[in-house]
Design a protein around this nucleic acid. Structure first.
Lengths: 202, 202
DNA sequence: ACGATAGAAATTGTCAACAATTTCAAATTG
DNA sequence: CAATTTGAAATTGTTGACAATTTCTATCGT
């Protein structure tokens, strides 16, 4: 990414988002500690903003914090818990997609199509980290458009689920699944959208 | 509380927990800003740990952060979203209670009985803030015993739901509901526990 | 009296220094 | 040689200072 080569200062939020992508993409091993100083150097800031980002990611569940020992990547989630979380995520997204279909305007639809396009491009490039990131960005779109409250809950679920295994192996199938969801949303076919969503999230 | 009169330094976590209780108890108005300096003085620490606590509570959803403007109490949640969250919370707790019944040992049962007792005392004293706090502590017990992962998700849901209205008005009924849950758990009556839970959470 | 403006006050953002703690490796002892 | 101790290095925890920004207030002009 070009972003990283241009040396400028990053904000808390940007640092948090970048680290989250890295975590989802699997750039760090399970249980690997993340050091404040090295990341501070990488982002060109002091340790303060890094600590802020750590706290946020800890609260989301992708990092674990221990007193006087800093943070490390959260260990793998148990299969059973993963199922519970996926179910919660599905129920949450179903509500959001229903609402989204009722409320979304022309501009939203435009953004949605762009996000789908970016997801498809990432799939075609077969870059797993990018695919994971674009997948989340697409789903996040209809969640955040509907409710900032639910977005927080959703983020915690989605990040944790995605970390387990980036099970987005079959890119072609994944493209098809998402195309069906977006298409149904655009023509306001609520029933079809929810069915397509269920097939994708579970 | 005696805790506050003894002047000593608080840790991040303690500050976070105390502020969370205050928020649930309704000590602050909706949209009221929280100032770093005044809280730093109150807890006898510098602004750093206060900022840490703010970030955690923001992530949980009880506070809202705006750049260069600090945090304020999150405005009331919409009824429809509240329903969705309550449903998610119920599903999550049902799973945890089932697991808890299978896994809990003698020591856990002892803690559970203590927490129930404390809840009942708070009810008898008719102190709404205390009741809200003890209610959360009791439910939190079986969640955290089962999964640290799910606890994070649960906390975000429970705090946000509790803030809307502390609907714990009928103390006697509330005591009965919780007694039935705990009793069923102790005799490992899974079906009864889940039914009692559903009546309480919804 | 009313609105705009400039300056003061209050508040948040960031940093670098220092204290406290943990980690690691070399030296010591049985 | 294994287990323990000791001390140095690395890392986190906390603080106070200063910069940047927002908010408040008093002044000014119409």
């Amino acid at each position: 990414m070009v972003k990283e080569s241009i040396k400028r200062d990053y904000t808390r939020e940007e640092i948090c988002d970048i680290l989250r992508s890295d975590l989802i993409a699997g750039k760090y091993r399970y249980d690997q500690p993340l050091r404040e100083i090295s990341l501070a150097k990488r982002f060109g800031v002091s340790r303060g903003p890094i600590r802020d980002a750590f706290l946020k990611l800890t609260q989301e569940g992708s990092l674990v914090y221990e007193t006087n020992r800093g943070v490390r990547v959260h260990s793998a989630i148990a299969d059973e818990e993963r199922k519970i979380m996926m179910n919660m995520r599905l129920e949450l997204e179903k509500y959001c997609v229903s609402k989204y279909i009722e409320e979304a305007n022309h501009k939203d639809h435009g953004e949605l199509e762009i996000l789908l396009e970016q997801f498809k491009n990432a799939c075609l490039r077969e870059s797993l980290p990018e695919v994971a990131e674009r997948d989340l960005a697409l789903h996040r779109h209809w969640v955040t458009r509907v409710s900032k409250n639910l977005e927080l809950i959703w983020l915690g679920l989605a990040v944790r689920i995605s970390m387990k295994y980036s099970r987005l192996e079959n890119f072609e199938e994944s493209i098809g699944e998402h195309e069906r969801i977006v298409e149904a949303i655009l023509v306001k076919n609520k029933d079809g959208a929810l069915k397509a969503l269920a097939l994708n999230v579970i």
